[in-house]
Structure formats: structure tokens, C-alpha cells
Write a protein that binds this DNA or RNA. Sequence first.
DNA 1: GACCCTCGCGAGAGCGCTCTCATCCCCCCT
DNA 2: AGGGGGGATGAGAGCGCTCTCGCGAGGGTC
Lengths: 347, 347
Amino acid sequence: MTETASRPTLEAVAARAGVSRATVSRVVNGGDGVREPLVERVRRAVEELGYVPNQAARSLVTRRHDAVAVVIAEPETRVFADPFFALQLRGISKELTAHDNQLVLLLTEGRADHARVARYLAGGHVDGALVFSLHLDDPLPGLIQGAGVPTVFGGRPGWSDGTRDVVYVDSDNRGGAREAVRHLVGLGRTRVAHLTGPLDQTSAADRLEGFRDVRGDADPRLVVESDFTPGGGERAMRELLDRCPDVDAVFAANDLTASGALRVLREHGRRVPEDVAVVGFDDMLPVAEQTDPPLTTVRQDIEEMGRIMARLLLRGLDRGTTTTDDTPDASPSGVVLPTTLVRRASA
Amino acid sequence: MTETASRPTLEAVAARAGVSRATVSRVVNGGDGVREPLVERVRRAVEELGYVPNQAARSLVTRRHDAVAVVIAEPETRVFADPFFALQLRGISKELTAHDNQLVLLLTEGRADHARVARYLAGGHVDGALVFSLHLDDPLPGLIQGAGVPTVFGGRPGWSDGTRDVVYVDSDNRGGAREAVRHLVGLGRTRVAHLTGPLDQTSAADRLEGFRDVRGDADPRLVVESDFTPGGGERAMRELLDRCPDVDAVFAANDLTASGALRVLREHGRRVPEDVAVVGFDDMLPVAEQTDPPLTTVRQDIEEMGRIMARLLLRGLDRGTTTTDDTPDASPSGVVLPTTLVRRASA
DNA sequence: GACCCTCGCGAGAGCGCTCTCATCCCCCCT
DNA sequence: AGGGGGGATGAGAGCGCTCTCGCGAGGGTC
């Protein structure tokens, strides 16, 4: 029998403690400007009554919600096939929790949902938004900026017309890719190929850039477009082997692609890493450690990324109210997190 | 420059449409009992002003939030290494969205967070909760029931003292396990082993039960306890090979465990499925399809599970207010979803 | 010792909405 | 044609909280 009896209100606590509502409110919100004995008395009353503030009533007047929306645009199932978002969410959750904020999760499924999300954000239900938009042509970021809600993006938004400041957090995809390719080169490999991700995603585009930074002069046939999936990796690897049978190193845009490539390599009797060295990207644990041989890859600290996104948003919330914070010394609009090369057996 | 100008209120819409607040409210909430021309006029005013109801004000009086908490207790990192929750969340999100409910995500990290979650739920910030508790000794479910919030559990809660009705949704772990083992037996295998999951989780315990249903009389050495991880699978498989070198079939409690077992089998020169047939559980795509050979496994529809959980909760919310709904014809307290065997190459 | 300033506390107004009532109008029934 | 009923609309209270003010008490200064 769960009590339908209504929860105690501020009023009730005030009555019990023999003080005014205002004083209880002060104590509940930090207790500044209230003398110790009173604070104590109120605390006890709160305790005894099991009082919990009514967030709706509070929000109504403060216009604060202590809630942040996390928007994950998920055009593809792939997104959910890897633990990327889960880790990111964990980081976000930790940071939010530490600052007493709630996490409202908004998953979008196609265009129809965009309007819904935009309306929700515009409705002022949350204090800010953390948005993951992976595609260059995604209209969502624009809509969200239009909603006038402080926002931090996860991953560099492809869309950047320069007219607005965009705050984002991203891994150093380009630098990581460079490191991966340099490692391959350092191994003495001369025919280094790259299996890209879908190039309409900034992460994939940036990794390709990194590859080009080191091997800009490479045979263009050594770059094969793929799609971040194992199946795509297989296809791309087949094509690569077909085009350039003499390839001796492969930098795959992510671990899943690498796993597909590995399979095809084995199938073709190429030894890894002896004949062909392979490096992945992400360090997706269940994949990278399970491949045969275990994958050398570029690790990014995904959880930390989430944490920093949340931190940035919360910090922005504290000072300004809008995204376009125009203090000249405003925090950098893009935070890029370092990556590290994890050496296993494949390269 | 995002407008700090306050959003239009009901009052403003009423003024513009030349009607009373009450009428606008009626229109906004469905328009019943308002004549067509008026409805039209109000709709237009809403449109022109870009009015969005203030949820806080609304909740304050209705005591409804149109929000549901999803609580994921995450004692282990493992939980996040597989896409299980992501899929579940997706299903939940879809259903919630379809009913205009928001999803508040509560991730817990250890005991300290339990109190936080309990307080939050007790605080009446959400209308109900969807809870994933995986461990037998988890105190969270109890706390949550204490909070007096309508709740649906994901997975059969180990804890069940029988004093309360518990609504939960689960896969047919036991039946799926039976099917897997029968498949192995049907292949003519006689020395069928089981690598269990952590037995303090009901899913693992249920799968073991399923195994026993078919092979209750099996040599006890054929059951090796493991932990749902690839590493654990390797260890368990080694031990199994050590104990029973003549084993000719393995039912692993999940795909990750199977992948570890597969590796050890290969290492020991056993051919799969010729020498040893292997079946997993979960049909975790990035894993099950990537193993060598591809894994025969038991699939559960995880997304559907999430959807059903949400549906159950929402339905309960509509009629009663408490968990302990005492209508005699109440919906079943446990919904068990079917599983299907997916045949690939490993068995 | 009188003055002023400060600090602690209480009173009261309202945040934007819903919902109950009372009112009013129109239509139907006799 | 008059009365009654019912449905459509408006008025107003109040949900639980915060926050501004004002008042009173205490301490410092000369």
C-alpha cells in the first residue's frame, strides 16, 4: 500500500519547525543567512517529515530545471551496435549527477522526431542540451540552435557556417589517425592503405585527413571508402586487395572495419601483421581484444568526452543564459581530446 | 542572440484569441467541449505566438509529469560493454515518445547512488520507473518499491519475497537455454557442457536451470561457472577441457563467453563444430557474427523488451496510481518474451 | 548613550497552469 | 410560446515554491 497521502510541503515543515516558509526555503537551499540553531531545527523537521522539495513548484518560479537533455540522433542502427554512446552517457551522467542535474534522454528516429525534439527544447523544459549529431547534413543542430537552448555538441558538427559559435567536444581524430599511420610507417611499411568511414561524418572525414597528413602523396587507390561496419570492412578490404595486391599495411577508420578487414586478410592467406599490418580506431574493447590477432588501435577516452561535455554545458549555464556567450574570454568553442595508440598484435 | 524575452503564457494566448484562460487550456489539452470556431481561433493564436505550455506549472497542479525514470544499476563495466541497454533504451524511448512521455535516465554507480535514486523517485519527479536490476542481492529494487512509485522491472528480479507483486519483463532465459541444449543434443552430442554466467544474476541462473531441464543428469563437472566475459569464457573453457577432455558440445551462457571459449578451443586444436559444437546466448551482433566460426546462438528481442516494459508501465499509470494494483484481473506480473535459436556455423 | 548599519527572519505576492463552479445561452419539449 | 435542461464559456482559487521587502534586534562607532 503506497501512501496516496500527499507528500509534506514546505508549509508543513515550517509549521513543525515553528518558523516561516521563507526560512525553511533558505535552509533547504543551502542555509545561508540563517542562524545555526534554527538551521538545525529545520533540518530535523525536514528529516522527520521526509520532506522532498517539489521540483515543479520550484521550477515554476526559478525557471531552472536542473535538467539537461541529451539528444542522440540515430539515423542508423549502427550507432547502437557499439558501446560508444553508452560510455558517453555514463560520463555525462556522472558529471550531471555530481551537480544535481537530471538527464533527460531524447532519442531521435528520423526527421519526424526532429520537430518533436526542437519543440521540446524550445519549450524550456531543460536548462541545456548535449547533442550528438554525426552527419554533415543533419538539420538537427540548426533546429536546436534555433530553439535558443544552451548547447554543447558531441563531435565536431559538420555543419559550421561560421555565423554562430558552436561549442563542441571531440576526440583528436586527425591526430590519432596521424599517429596510427606513422606507426605503420615506422614499422617500415611502404604501401599503407586507409579504409575510411562514411565520409559524411566528421569523425571519418577527420581520420582521412590525418591519413593524408602523413601519406598525402600516396597512391589514391590505397584509399577505399567504407562505412564503419564489419561487412563494409570486408568489402573494402576485398576491393583494396584487388586494386593493390602489394598492400602491406592498413589503417582502418574504426575497429569494426578493421575486424572485417582482418577476416578477409585471413581468408586470402595474408598473415597479420607479417604480411599486412593493421591498425584500427576506437579501441572498442569487445571487438579490439577479440580479433585474431588482437588489434592495435587508437584509443579515445569516450567517457571523459561525455564528462567534459557536461562540464562545459553546466559551466555555461552558470554564467550566461544563451549559447552565444559573448564574453571575449569565453571558453574555447571546441575542445579536442587526445588519443593514444594501443599496441597489440596486429601492427 | 537567443531571446531572453519570456515565452508567451496561456494568458497571452487567451488575450490574443479573445477568450478566457480556461478555454485556451481546454483547447491545448484536446479541445473537448469547445466549439469549432473558438478552437480554430485559439489554435491560430497558439501558432502565432509560438506558445508552448509550461510543464512545471502544469505538473504543479496535475501532479503528473509525463516523465518516466529509467534506472540502470551498473555495478560492473561489463554492462556497458554490450549493446544490451542501448537497445533496451531504444525500445523504451520509442514507446514513451509515442505517448508523449519523457525519459529521465538514472545511472547508478555503487551504493552511494542508491539513496540518491530512491530520494529522487520518492520526490515525485516522475510518474513511474523502469528498473534494471541484475543482481540477486541488489538492494535497489527494495528501495524503489519503498519509494512508492509505479515500477516495472527489466529482467526477473532475483529478490522476490512474495510479499509484493512485482511487475517485470524478461526473456525466456530458461526456455531459450533448453532450446540451445536440445539443439546440441539433436546434433548427436553426448558430452554437453555449460559455461554459466555469474549465478547471482537471474538471467544466468535461469539459463543454468534451462540447461538442467534437459541435462539434469549430466556429469556435474560439465558445468563450469563463468562470468559473461570473454576472458571468463577462456578460463572456464580451459578448466572444462582439463576436467572433461572428451566434451563435444558447449552451451555458453552468453555470446561473449562463447567467443572466449571458441578461442581456447582453436588454441587447443579442436575444430568447431566438428569436434566441439558451441552455442551462445544473446545474439549480440557485433560478437556473434564476428566469431570464427560465426556463432549459433539464442536470440532475444531486446528492443521489444524495452517497448513492452514501457507499455506496461504506461498502462498501469493510466488506471491505478500505485504499484500494488489490486484489481483482481490485473495484468500478469511477469511477462516473458520468447527467444529463438539462430543457427550459424558453430553448432 | 544615541545613532546607524547590518543581519536574521517573516509576510506576502506571484510563477503559469488546471479545475471546479457558476453563469449564460440556445435549443428542445410540451 | 414559455420553461427547463444541457452544453459551452468565464471567473477565480490555489498547486508549492522562491524572493523581494520590511521590520526588528543586535553590535559597532563616536
